[in-house]
Amino acid sequence: MSSDFRQICRWFIGEHEPGVHFDEPVTDFIEIVTFTDADEIVAVLEEVLAEDWARMPVWARNLAFRLAVLQRPHDADLLHTAGADLRCWGPTWHHIADEMMRRAGAMKEEQAQQRQEPNHLQRHPTRQDRRGREGSQDQRSAQPRFSEDWSAEEVRSSSRSGSMPIGSPEETSDAG
Rank of each mutant, 00 (worst) to 15 (best):
residue 27 T to W: 03
residue 28 D to G: 07
residue 28 D to V: 04
residue 28 D to K: 08
residue 29 F to E: 01
residue 30 I to T: 10
residue 30 I to Y: 11
residue 31 E to A: 14
residue 31 E to R: 15
residue 32 I to W: 12
residue 32 I to H: 10
residue 32 I to Y: 09
residue 33 V to M: 08
residue 34 T to W: 04
residue 37 D to I: 02
residue 37 D to P: 04
residue 38 A to N: 05
residue 38 A to D: 11
residue 38 A to C: 10
residue 39 D to K: 04
residue 39 D to R: 03
residue 42 V to L: 03
residue 44 V to L: 06
residue 45 L to W: 00
residue 45 L to Q: 01
residue 46 E to R: 15
residue 46 E to W: 11
residue 48 V to E: 08
residue 49 L to T: 01
residue 49 L to A: 01
residue 49 L to Q: 03
residue 49 L to N: 01
residue 50 A to S: 13
residue 52 D to I: 02
residue 52 D to Q: 05
residue 53 W to E: 15
residue 54 A to D: 14
residue 55 R to D: 15
residue 59 W to Y: 14
residue 60 A to L: 13
residue 60 A to T: 11
residue 63 L to I: 12
residue 63 L to K: 09
residue 64 A to V: 09
residue 64 A to M: 08
residue 64 A to L: 08
residue 65 F to T: 03
residue 65 F to V: 02
residue 67 L to F: 10
residue 67 L to N: 05
residue 68 A to G: 11
residue 72 R to V: 01
residue 73 P to D: 07
residue 74 H to W: 08
residue 75 D to W: 01
residue 75 D to P: 00
residue 76 A to H: 00
residue 77 D to F: 04
residue 77 D to S: 08
residue 77 D to V: 04
residue 78 L to Y: 05
residue 79 L to G: 01
residue 79 L to W: 00
residue 80 H to P: 00
residue 81 T to H: 15
residue 81 T to G: 14
residue 82 A to G: 10
residue 82 A to Q: 06
residue 83 G to T: 03
residue 83 G to M: 04
residue 83 G to N: 05
